[in-house]
């Protein structure tokens, strides 16, 4: 059995107090509690403070490029269906530059988890507005206040067919670990948005801000519309598993007996060659 120590990778360089520490610990704890070994996982991360999680959690990791953790992660699962795959990144990575992939992953339903560390700001580039920043939010690039309105992540995945949609808060580790565990065990695309305060650059969306405002959803809603209505009613300030649906995942639907790993050194398969060349004769 793996222990938390086995899941420890490189030394984190996040600011003290950053919400990402809790999320990293939450992923580690979930893997250990579920009884998995580090080699069974691949964590695929994007770019930003959050992107470093693939190095800090000692599983297989792939630190990719900005906004592309989700397509790479889906490819990883296609290449080896036996791996447990987690994509992770921040709100800029997933809801800004990578938003398109998120919508398509939601409707595609490949068996993987997408954990977003949502701090409502661009941290690593030192404090610019993010697609999750509130209207009126003042940053270096929105000195007069943000004139746009934020992306609604859980409504997006809900509306686009994700089969597991949840939201958590880095300040509530117990609930978060439970949600991550359920997301990992869910067969299909699971989206977990986690509020993760940026203690250095975001003076609005702080731990206290969330503690005062978040409402816990104890049980997933029966249908998407109810979940969507609640999210809207509470301006997205909810935590818990909002929706969960059992549906065959993408790979199951293909009905293919995957044989992708057996390519070994040697001559081409001659029988296969002769079978295939016939169509061109």
């Amino acid at each position: 059995m793996a222990t938390l120590k086995d899941l420890r990778g490189d030394t984190p360089s996040w600011c003290p107090g950053c919400g990402h520490f809790s999320i990293m610990a939450g992923i580690q704890k979930a893997v250990v509690q579920l009884g998995y070994e580090p080699h069974e996982f691949a964590i695929i991360s994007g770019i930003g403070c959050s992107g470093k999680v693939s190095e800090y959690v000692r599983t297989n990791g792939f630190h990719t490029i900005h906004g592309r953790s989700v397509p790479v992660a889906q490819g990883v699962k296609m290449g080896n269906p036996d791996l447990k795959v987690i994509a992770s990144g921040g709100d800029g990575d997933g809801y800004g530059i990578g938003l398109g992939h998120f919508v398509h992953a939601s409707r595609r339903n490949i068996d993987m988890s997408y954990i977003v560390m949502d701090n409502n700001i661009y941290g690593l580039t030192k404090g610019q507005t993010s697609p999750r920043s509130e209207h009126g939010f003042v940053t270096k690039t929105t000195k007069e206040g943000n004139k746009e309105y934020p992306v609604d992540p859980v409504s997006t995945s809900l509306a686009n067919g994700a089969t597991f949609v949840a939201q958590a808060f880095a300040g509530d580790i117990k609930q978060m670990v439970d949600i991550i565990e359920r997301a990992i065990e869910h067969k299909g695309f699971s989206h977990v948005n986690i509020y993760s305060p940026c203690v250095t650059f975001n003076k609005v969306n702080t731990y206290d801000f969330y503690k005062e405002r978040l409402t816990k959803i104890e049980k997933p809603f029966e249908d998407r519309d109810e979940a969507l209505a609640k999210v809207r009613e509470l301006s997205g300030l909810v935590t818990g598993v909002l929706y969960e649906e059992k549906r065959p995942d993408f790979q199951g639907k293909l009905g293919i007996e995957f044989d992708t790993q057996s390519c070994t050194n040697g001559e081409m398969d001659e029988d296969l060659f002769h079978k295939m060349e016939k169509q061109f004769q």
Binding site: A42, I44, F62, T64, R68, P71, V72, A73, Q74, G75, V76, K77, M78, G79, N80, L83, G100, H101, H104, T260, Q261, C263
Partner: peptide, 14 residues
């Protein structure tokens, strides 16, 4: 996505 999916699949051995 076309290239990223393929990179992911190759990374995992295909």
């Amino acid at each position: 996505a076309g290239i990223c999916f393929a990179i992911g699949a190759s990374y995992s051995g295909t």
